[in-house]
Design a binder for these strands. Structure first.
Lengths: 353, 353
DNA sequence: GCCCGTCGTCGAAACGCTTCGACTAAGCGG
DNA sequence: CCGCTTAGTCGAAGCGTTTCGACGACGGGC
């Protein structure tokens, strides 16, 4: 409640002197400095954020822009948020969470022009995403989590899907698997240009090709039911599959459930690798899932740090970085079954929803 | 980038007139209003948030204060956040996410005095929590998610643990269960005064007493391993238990895993009810868990709306509200086994980590 | 003994908005 | 026809900072 005026009066100096003590922009004698500091302490003075923001034209507020659909955030997205929040807070910035749909153009521009944000981190970027352009036009520093198709002139941090898929496939092939099915996100997501789905699809093809194997891919709705359906489809297409690689965090449990119903043991008959998964989720399954653990919090933190560096003028170039997911072998993968044959194929259960 | 000055000049009116058009605090003739509006549109004018905040002494920013430990947020907490964010955004407020530990007193006071927040929602409140007092001293409107022991003069929204536990117990008793074990949060959490743990403990005692049954309770660490250990302990203490009621979202999968190891079928031999759980998590298990679904997003939304009402001066009284979790029967509960006996007790497997 | 640069401080002008008091021009009841 | 209210507008004074230009004092090089 106390203002700089009060402090100045109590310390018998001018307001500007108090400001200089605070910001250190001009030399101040030791004597007055201590007098001013004492006055501040006595009055329990805190500089007013709004006033400071107005005068400096820097709010020390950064935005975290993300679509917040009904279903809420998955573990990985939540990790982005907490990582970014921690980094911002550590640097003395405030982080505002702005739910902004992929199509909310005007909302976005309003946010950008209001002068409330020094910069923003944009999550859930599509391969084609004009929000990026809108923000840049407004002159707002932006860092992406995820990336557009054309990344020229952009700062981003993303998961290295190519690398991650290759590692996962290598792991399975190394265990002797040959008939591997990739369960991706939904066909809708792919059609909509959802980056992770697209990139993992291509990477899976490439990885399988490198081993001289044929890539089989199934799209799954983001739900347990979707997972069950996907597994049914997979078995129908490749009856003697020995491994499933799944991108879809929501579908994975449906996949496991359907495998159980069909009496295919994991990892005895079928090995399962879950991609871009948080350890917590991987531990939930039984057996615990061998997974590519997403560097969620790290990604959020790195993105935020890159943004702040840009704001502070430390970095002028763009920050572009890919982080692979780390392979963590747990209980759901093992050597490929000897006979690639038709184990348990008979009970080709109902497609189920 | 355009300021009110520019708009005023272009519309050939004074700055104050532009302001009145914007805020509607004084009558403006239709003619000038349209002229001003046209000028705004032409210049693509957006009022500067900082300047407005400084002049009105209202930032239209609210804080969401929560401890953000290493492990990150659970599904329920995440729902609080998204619910609150959506509500704030819908009302034209900005929501800043502030990781603030339970002990960060000075950080809290600094946040409160900086004038950046019009009000705050405080999450993860302890039964004894002096942060609440600190915030109130600073004159900041506060709404809690969760509640302290003494709620006089406070606004809060919380889960109705009493009601929730009673419903859960009634459900199990209604299915014929008599030997029900409650798996709570860790002993540490209870000792630290973690409200949900305390309140469910008491409620469980009361609910069991009402049915003339003896309450058996086990504390579990928040992990799958903790769940396994807890179930082992439970079986040791009540060999013929037929139902488990679990509070601990992290431990629940350990409990299920350990049951599987001990060849106790769910729900054939043992029924399991998970408390304060999100549907997504409940669906992950196999069989899907009968659970008390936490009203996560609703809680966040209601808390935020209460805060905003307070800020707008609409509501003067305090908002105190409890929401029960909704019982959603899925596959993990069924009639109590006929013979309460020693089914599967022989294979009293290793405590496992 | 001068001139100049640096140190330490001050006053005032921004920053972009809201809001108060005042003023003009109508409209209107008596 | 006069004084009152009311609609409509303006200018100026804030809001609490930062920052720029200025100014006195002081010390050093010559």
């Amino acid at each position: 409640m106390a203002t700089m005026h009060d402090v100045a009066r109590l310390a018998r100096v001018s307001v500007s002197t108090v400001s200089y003590v605070l910001t250190g922009t001009r030399p101040i004698s030791e004597a007055t400095r201590t007098r001013v500091l004492a006055a501040m302490a006595e009055l329990d003075y805190q500089p007013n954020a709004m006033a400071r923001g107005l005068a400096t034209r820097r709010s020390r507020i950064v935005g975290l822009l993300m679509p917040m659909d009904e279903r809420g955030l998955g573990a990985t997205e939540t990790a982005f948020v907490t990582g970014a929040a921690a980094a911002a807070s550590a640097a003395g910035y405030h982080l505002v969470l702005s739910p902004v749909g992929a199509a909310d153009h005007d909302v976005l521009r309003r946010l950008a022009t209001q002068g409330m944000f020094d910069g923003v981190v944009l999550m859930e970027v599509q391969v084609e995403d004009d929000r990026v352009a809108a923000l840049q036009e407004a002159g707002l520093p932006v860092v992406l989590i995820g990336r557009t198709g054309d990344t020229a002139g952009l700062s981003y941090v993303d998961i290295d899907f190519e690398q991650t898929v290759h590692e996962a496939v290598d792991h399975l092939v190394g265990l002797g698997h040959r008939r591997i099915v990739y369960v991706n996100h939904s066909a809708d997501a792919i059609a909509a240009g959802y980056g992770p789905a697209l990139r993992t699809r291509d990477a899976f093809c490439a990885a399988m090709a490198r081993h001289g194997l044929e890539p089989v891919m199934i799209a799954a709705e983001d739900s347990a039911a979707g997972g069950r359906a996907a597994l049914s489809a997979a078995v129908a297409q490749v009856p003697d599959l020995t491994a499933v690689l799944a991108m879809n965090e929501s579908a994975i449990f449906g996949i496991l459930g359907e495998l159980a119903i069909r009496h295919r043991a994991v990892p005895g008959d079928v090995s399962v690798v879950s991609m871009v998964t948080s350890p917590q989720v991987a531990e939930l399954a039984h057996p615990a899932l061998t997974a590519m653990t997403s560097p969620g919090a790290a990604l959020g933190r790195i993105a935020m740090e890159a943004l702040l560096r840009q704001l502070e003028g430390v970095a002028k170039e763009h920050h572009q970085q890919l982080l692979p997911c780390a392979l963590e072998v747990r209980g759901s993968t093992g050597p490929a079954a000897r006979t690639g044959g038709d184990v348990g194929l008979t009970g080709s259960g109902p497609p189920d929803t």
